[in-house]
Amino acid sequence: MSQLRQINKAIRSTIALWVLTALLYPLLMLLSGQIAFSFQANGSLLTNSQGRVIGSALIGQPFRSNRYFWSRPSTIDYSTTEVATTGISGASNLAPSNPELLKRIQAEVTRLKQANIQPTADLVYTSGSGLDPHISPEAAQAQVQHVSTARRIAPNQIQKLIDKNTDGRFLGIFGEPGVNVLKLNLALDALQPNL
C-alpha cells in the first residue's frame, strides 16, 4: 500500500510541475511580454506613413537607391534570396585569403566609389549574422553628401536625422553607437513624403 501511495504522489507531483512549468509560466511570460514590451515581443516592426509594415528594426534590409542610406552588405542578401527565406543567417565563412571574398570586397569598394561614397569598414564588410540593421555613425557621415544631392536636402537636415536615429552604447558602456538604417530612411521619407 505504501508503494502505491508513493507512485500516486509522484504522478501528482509530476502533473503539478508540468502544469506550472509547461503551461502557467509560459503563459505568464507571454502576457507580461505583450503588456510591458509589446513592440519588442511582436518583432519590433516598423510601418511607413500609410501604416503598412515594411520591416523590423532588428533586421537589416538592402537599400540601393541614391535617395537612401545604404546598409551593410550581407552574405545572405537580407532575406531577399531563396536561401534566406528559411531563416538562415550567418557569415560567409570565407578566409581572408579566399579569392571570392577579395573579389566581393573589391566590387563593393568600386560600387561605393562610383557613388562618390568613401568606403568604411561596415559598408564593405558583412556582419557576423549577415542581418545587422546598423551602420556606424562614420558610415552614415560618408553617405550624407550622396543622399543630400539625390534628395536636394541640406546636409545639416540630414545630420539631424542621423543624430536622432543613432543608438548609443548599451548601458552606456557596452558595444558601439550605431545608426539604424531602416529608421533613418523612414525619417528621410517622412521629411519628404511626396518623393
Rank of each mutant, 00 (worst) to 15 (best):
M1N: 11
Q3L: 10
L4Y: 13
Q6G: 06
I7N: 04
N8I: 05
K9A: 05
K9R: 13
A10Q: 04
I15K: 13
L17S: 14
L17H: 12
L17E: 12
W18D: 12
V19I: 13
T21R: 07
T21F: 14
A22L: 11
L24R: 04
P26D: 04
P26S: 06
L27Q: 11
L27D: 10
L30Q: 12
L31E: 08
L31N: 10
L31A: 14
I35Q: 09
I35H: 10
A36H: 12
A36E: 13
F39P: 07
F39K: 10
N42G: 00
N42H: 02
G43H: 03
L45T: 02
T47I: 09
N48M: 04
V53L: 06
A57S: 00
Q61Y: 03
Q61N: 03
F63R: 02
R64C: 07
R64A: 14
S65N: 14
N66F: 15
R67V: 13
Y68S: 12
Y68A: 10
W70G: 11
W70H: 15
S74P: 06
Y78E: 09
T81G: 15
E82R: 15
E82M: 15
V83L: 15
T85P: 13
T86D: 12
I88L: 15
S92Y: 03
S92H: 04
N93Y: 08
N93G: 05
S97W: 13
N98S: 02
P99D: 01
P99K: 02
K103D: 12
R104T: 07
Q106H: 06
V109S: 02
V109F: 01
T110K: 10
L112N: 05
K113T: 09
Q114Y: 03
A115N: 04
A115T: 01
N116M: 01
N116A: 00
A121G: 10
L123W: 01
V124A: 05
V124L: 04
T126G: 09
T126M: 12
T126F: 06
G128K: 01
G128M: 02
G128D: 03
S129V: 09
G130N: 10
D132K: 08
D132R: 07
H134V: 15
P137M: 03
A139P: 02
Q141V: 11
H146P: 04
H146F: 10
A150S: 07
R151F: 05
R152V: 05
P155G: 02
L161K: 02
L161T: 07
I162R: 00
K164V: 01
N165T: 00
T166L: 02
T166C: 01
T166Y: 00
D167F: 08
G168F: 00
F170L: 14
F170I: 11
L171E: 09
G172M: 05
G172C: 06
I173K: 12
E176S: 15
G178N: 01
V179E: 00
N180I: 06
L182Q: 14
K183F: 07
L184D: 06
L184C: 08
L191E: 03
L191W: 00
Q192F: 04
N194M: 10
N194L: 11
